[in-house]
């Protein structure tokens, strides 16, 4: 960890609150600092005025992000923040796989990871609530 020089800061952009939360929590436990954006405008706000001046290294973005889709975001990032890597995911399973890959290359190496865990967690949260 001490000599880790790879990406440390992630931005997760997904308009589904529970999906975003599950992905973000998982990646926090993989050692990343993770901020969350619920829509396109929030992503732009964060990238234009990053908290503490620290830009995210990677944006993990749902293709169907509300307010402007993931492809439009990638175009914006290339034009304005070319140092930031954008990872697009077309559905929840793809997002979980991408999170798994980020976890494996991330700050806390050696953690066992199964993207199915995130999917199971999302499924449990989205299940109808028992009254």
């Amino acid at each position: 960890m001490a000599d880790y020089e790879g990406p440390k800061n992630l931005l997760i952009a997904d308009s589904d609150t529970l999906v975003r939360h599950a992905l973000a929590e998982y990646l926090r436990h993989c050692g990343y600092r993770v901020v969350e954006a619920t829509n396109f405008d929030e992503v732009i706000s964060i990238l234009e005025r990053p908290e503490d001046g620290v830009l995210p290294d990677i944006v993990l973005c749902d293709v169907g992000l509300t307010g402007g889709n993931g492809f439009a975001l990638r175009v914006w990032v290339r034009a304005h923040r070319p140092e930031v890597r954008v990872v697009l995911a077309g559905n929840v399973a793809a997002a979980a796989r991408a999170a798994g890959e980020l976890c494996e290359e991330g700050p806390d190496l050696g953690r066992p990871y199964d993207p199915q865990l995130v999917l199971d967690q999302i499924r449990r949260m989205k299940a109808p609530r028992l009254q």
């Binding site: 609150t17 975003r20 939360h21 969350e36 989205k126 109808p128 609530r129």
Partner: peptide, 20 residues
């Protein structure tokens, strides 16, 4: 504290209605 972030009332309602 674990924080579930919602950006507006509708997103918040979706979480209240979920099994979270």
């Amino acid at each position: 504290i674990s924080v579930i972030e919602a950006g507006n009332g509708a997103e918040g309602l979706a979480v209240l209605e979920s099994a979270a």
